[in-house]
Design a protein around this nucleic acid. Structure first.
Length: 631
DNA sequence: CTAGGGTTAG
């Protein structure tokens, strides 16, 4: 029999072990009896049997591999039974492995029962238990077990702490996360790559990038995963450009990226919308012979679409060997926000034919595509079929798409009816969609109601006040306008700054309203001035009626001339080759006046202009926009 | 014998 200390060498088969006749030795992978006979019937034969035939049943290594091969809980329990009968449960390595395998099969109850029965628990046993609970989402049990662990007199280590940090991340419990961070310091683990990676990830999910970056910067040596979580954290917290910078720094330190790292970088690139960077990244991936698996491939499809080229996205999509529901949804979504509604809904039957079933996000993408292309009947049909034919229950997002779709088409009554009858909680997105419809079709009273609901839901969001004030302004209710403004100043609500950026010669040029910081500022304003004269000659009228934008700054009439979009386009015109496409990006929604402006520019300059705003893409060509002119 | 990072909407 084994001592509780793990022996370095395994006992030989002439140890005085007896096999019980009750033990059935079944190979869990094949369910085949390994031997027809039971050993206890022939105890005297053991010494005469060749060593190799029996040693495996006494060898812990045999059970370790048996456990790894288990395909079901049933099989695990069978091996467990063998281990118990053979007395190998006293072997800590075997016992811990068993514990671990139970947790892998999400059988935390069995794991815990085994855990309790173990006479000799070591740090690994505790870690496996704490981690098992954490991964299964049983956070309270995980924490409880950790406390018991501390009470048993042991110190938290670089195995247990990442699990706890994971609990904090998954529950978004920043307070607890900070406490554990303190424990990390007390135990001198602030440079452990596992601990730091977990902490950075936790902070980023809680949107406190500063703490994450500080921790990261102080590390003496960072490994690939630490870099990867930091890159992901930047993207998550709204600074994808920084994520791309980190990627370059990482490579400068000779850390070689793997697929997971690249997925994070591709995501960052998608967020920045920088087409040139996207191409360079793609080349890097091809040159280094990374195969495009479903995840990386999907990320790539998404990246090209969000960087402005739905066609290249489709090429990548077509080239993927494996596509899952996420890949298809990404492609459908891409067509949707590029205003190609028909292409989007055409993908749906193709997806079904390839044997992929839609999920709720697929339907969000489909309905979204319909609403942005005015495909009312198609949208209705899809909405009705999602529950009936595919068993996907509509949630608030789907209702919002429908309200948007119906509202844009002028069917406000139908929208309202849908809202009245929906059985899910209403959120700001829904009121926003209704408001959008009111804005297009001039329903002042309803718009007022929707805006008030918005403010009620999110009193801290300045955008809602601006909207309401604009509604009043349009209706000539100037006293109400003043009241809202006063309310805003009183509550010291911060305005959301709007900006537009454009990539020229691999460099990002950023503009805000009335911006004079660009080194070619003078030329830009001159160009804009000439342009406006030409545009006005062609019939463009600066649209002071469409003052319903999200940004307070840009409301001021005097600033209409120098909206960030216009500055970026003027710069694009003077700094890019004739006839080339101008791509600009805006962090908020492009306003109605700039929308009209773009149409005219595309007409008189024969340029294609692609605008990515917070919501979607607008492709301006020969005086028209792909968005169906929903302004 | 245990540990961290990956795809669609928002």
């Amino acid at each position: 029999m084994f001592k509780s200390k793990t022996p370095k060498t395994f006992p030989s088969n002439n140890a005085t072990l007896r096999y019980s006749s009750a033990t059935s030795l079944v190979d869990p992978t094949t369910h085949q009896e390994l031997h027809q006979h039971t050993f206890s019937n022939q105890p005297n034969d053991i010494s005469q049997t060749p060593t190799s035939q029996f040693s495996q049943y006494l060898d812990p290594r045999f059970y370790l591999s048996q456990l790894l091969n288990c395909k079901s809980l049933y099989q695990v329990k069978q091996v467990h039974a063998q281990i118990t009968t053979n007395g190998l449960i006293k072997n800590q390595i075997v016992a811990n492995k068993l514990l671990y395998i139970y947790s892998l099969h999400k059988s935390l109850d069995y794991a815990y029962a085994l855990f309790c029965s173990l006479s000799g628990k070591n740090a690994v046993s505790w870690s496996v238990m704490i981690g098992g609970y954490a991964k299964a989402g049983e956070f309270i049990n995980s924490l409880r077990t950790f406390r018991e662990y501390l009470r048993s007199g042991d110190k938290p280590d670089n195995y247990t702490l990442p699990f706890l940090i994971r609990v904090c991340r998954d529950t978004m419990d920043l307070q607890m996360g900070r406490k554990i961070h303190n424990v990390v310091y007390k135990n001198g683990l602030q440079s452990d790559v596992f601990v730091v990676a977990a902490l950075v990830d936790m902070y980023s999910k809680c949107k406190v990038i500063g703490d994450a970056k500080q921790l990261f910067d102080k590390m003496p040596k960072r490994d690939l995963v630490t870099w990867t979580v930091m890159i992901g954290a930047c993207t998550e917290c709204g600074d994808p450009s920084e994520a791309l910078v980190l990627f370059d720094q990482m490579r400068e330190e000779d850390v070689v990226p793997d697929k997971v790292a690249l997925v994070n970088v591709v995501n960052a690139c998608a967020k920045t919308g920088a087409m040139h960077k996207a191409k360079v990244l793609h080349e890097y991936i091809v040159r280094n012979k990374f195969s495009l698996d479903v995840i990386l491939g999907t990320a790539m499809v998404d990246m090209y679409a969000k960087c402005g080229s739905v066609d290249v996205a489709r090429e990548v999509f077509d080239g993927l060997r494996e596509k899952n529901v996420i890949t298809w949804s990404a492609m459908i979504g891409a067509y949707g926000y590029h205003g190609q509604g028909h292409e989007a809904i055409d993908m749906f039957p193709m997806m079904l034919r390839s044997g992929i079933l839609p999920n709720k996000i697929t339907f969000v993408s489909l309905l979204y595509a319909c609403s942005h292309s005015g495909l009312v009947e198609e949208g209705k049909r899809l909405f009705n079929s999602m529950q009936n034919e595919y068993g996907v229950k509509p949630d608030i997002k789907h209702f919002t798409c429908m309200v948007d779709l119906l509202g844009r088409a002028g069917k406000i009554d139908e929208s309202l009816e849908l809202i009245d009858h929906m059985a899910v909680e209403k959120d700001e997105g829904l009121w926003g969609a209704l408001l959008g419809a009111c804005r297009i079709h001039g329903h002042v009273e309803l718009a007022e109601k929707a805006a008030k609901s918005l403010i009620e839901l999110q009193p801290q969001n300045p955008g809602h006040y601006v909207l309401l004030s604009n509604i009043y302004a349009k209706a000539g209710k100037w006293q109400d306008v003043a009241k809202i403004r006063e309310l805003m100043t009183h509550q010291k609500l911060k305005k959301i700054p709007g900006w537009t950026w454009i990539e020229v010669d691999n460099k990002i040029h950023r503009f805000s309203v009335g911006d004079h910081t660009h080194h070619q500022s003078k030329e830009i304003y001159e160009k804009l001035k000439c342009l406006l004269e030409e545009l006005e000659a062609a019939g463009y009228v600066p649209d002071t009626n469409f003052v319903l934008h999200d940004v307070d700054e840009e409301l001021k009439l005097g600033n209409l001339f120098s909206h960030s979009e216009k500055l970026a386009i003027a710069f694009g015109l003077i700094s890019t080759p004739e006839h080339s496409t101008i791509r600009i990006m805006k962090n908020l929604r492009v306003c109605g006046d700039c929308h009209t402006f773009c149409k005219f520019v595309s007409q008189i300059t024969s340029r294609v202009i692609v605008v990515r705003d917070a919501n979607r893409f607008h492709h301006f060509k020969e005086g028209a926009c792909s968005c169906g002119d929903y302004w």
